Amino acid sequence: MAELRQMTWISSNREDGAKILHLRIGNNAWKPYSATPHAVPDYKISGGSKGWATYQELSKAGWTLVDSETALAPPVLTSAVVEGEESIAIGQFLTF
């Protein structure tokens, strides 16, 4: 089963509140796109969104966009029994 590859736009710590692209693979923490090997050079446009070129490339490659509110929400813990094994679902990830 392929790992989830997700993207989201999260506000930076800048005063203007601009959002930058963050990436996550599997259930790892969100990282700014520029801190990953998946980053594509930004367009040289004054005031352009940081990560827009990366978003376009990864979107074409099948990455999923997650809304910011969902991305920043704490994981929800639930439990289930799957094929006789107890499992715990953390957010949208199921672990055994």
Rank of each mutant, 00 (worst) to 15 (best):
D42Y: 01
K50I: 12
T70C: 05
Q6T: 09
W30L: 08
I45L: 07
K31V: 12
S46P: 01
S34T: 11
Y33C: 13
G17K: 09
G47K: 08
P32C: 10
L23G: 00
S34G: 05
G17R: 07
L21A: 06
P37C: 04
A18Y: 10
L72D: 03
A39C: 07
G17Y: 06
W30P: 02
I25N: 11
L21C: 04
S79I: 09
T54R: 01
W9Q: 04
R5G: 01
E15P: 12
S79D: 13
V40C: 03
E69H: 09
A18N: 12
P74Q: 12
S46K: 07
I10F: 13
P74T: 13
A61H: 02
M7E: 04
Q6E: 15
S11H: 11
L65K: 06
A61D: 05
N27H: 13
G62Y: 11
D42H: 01
P41I: 02
K31R: 15
G47H: 07
L77F: 14
S49Q: 09
S59N: 13
T36R: 04
Y55A: 13
K44Q: 10
L4N: 10
N28L: 10
A73R: 15
T54C: 01
V81G: 04
E3C: 03
L58Q: 04
I20Y: 08
L77W: 10
A35C: 09
L77E: 14
G51Q: 02
N13A: 13
S59M: 10
